[in-house]
Amino acid sequence: MRIECPCCGLRDHREFDYGGDALRQRPAHNDTDIDRWSDYVFMRRNPSGLHREFWQHIYGCRQWIVVSRDTVSHQILSVCLASGAHGAGQGLERA
């Protein structure tokens, strides 16, 4: 597989590390609700088809990125920096 890093260009997947489901919502840091944290940590989507997932370009710019990938065909539809695309109040729209 090859991933188009927004900083470094088209690179081989072995330069990247997988980071899992990018649609899960991290609760606010001061949230004390155990269910919301459990959801965030343990409940991951694992679709057959279009998925949005975190990758980190560990042997490159070390940026965390969000890759929209079809888990059946491995086709990659888009890649963007994870920066600002995630976290409290700034969720990704659900694909």
């Binding site: 840091h29 975190f54 965390w64 994870a82 920066s83 600002g84 995630h86 976290g87």
Partner: peptide, 13 residues
Amino acid sequence: MSYLEFLLQTCWS
């Protein structure tokens, strides 16, 4: 290191 980068680049930008 990767996890600290994740926190700073995503949740705690």
